[in-house]
Nucleic acid binder design. Sequence first.
DNA 1: CTTTGACTTAGAGTATGCTCTAAGTTGCTA
DNA 2: TAGCAACTTAGAGCATACTCTAAGTCAAAG
Lengths: 112, 112
Amino acid sequence: MKIKEVSEFTGISAHTIRYYEKQGVLELPKKDSSGHRNYSDTDVELINWVACMKNSGMSLRDIKGYVTASIEGRNEDALVALRIHLEKLEEQKKNIDHYIDVTEEKINRLSN
Amino acid sequence: MKIKEVSEFTGISAHTIRYYEKQGVLELPKKDSSGHRNYSDTDVELINWVACMKNSGMSLRDIKGYVTASIEGRNEDALVALRIHLEKLEEQKKNIDHYIDVTEEKINRLSN
DNA sequence: CTTTGACTTAGAGTATGCTCTAAGTTGCTA
DNA sequence: TAGCAACTTAGAGCATACTCTAAGTCAAAG
């Protein structure tokens, strides 16, 4: 896949994919004969998962940690990164539930 | 209350409170004889609610919209801002639930 | 009366995460 | 083979939300 196709498939712009590669969040894929990026299915799968982590609020720093651990075969480290993120998500959920309550209360108070 | 007390009470730094005032998110409070900010109980209550909205992910732009409507007595507009925010919170909650599922799945797949 | 510390302002600097530009190369299509 | 779209790079610019600095004022404590 070329970068534009990956961009369409994953919802991350080509600019942003290159930016992630520059930041070390993603590895540079193989290049074709004319020097253009050529992404394998495995590459695309990883980028898709990166998109998911990004959308769920994981910082690029943490995503980079996860990706690097994955690539280097440090599965336990990759798992730890995911578990930490899961905890953060659950914390976020608790907070949001709280803020929903508080906001509803405020709305009710103002409605009367 | 002086700015430092407000800062301690609301958890927003004095720097940030001044920044909010500069940005028009908050109104400048009355100043005492030596030109120092002097916050009334009503001011502090509002700043506390701003802190709550900020922590729940509302943008400064939207908080400003809410605060301005409140101050100008446009109660219906203030309510609309809160209702929109509530919808966003509920959307966020849905997303987070989804990402919790996906992340748990990924963890389980990697654990085997 | 001087020192200490909190206050004031304008404005610069930082962190995160993009987003775009410029200048140039390459590859398909008519 | 000319033209156009997509690719390449380095690097600049932008949005959000702070966070800090410099230079100065002011008031209470020792």
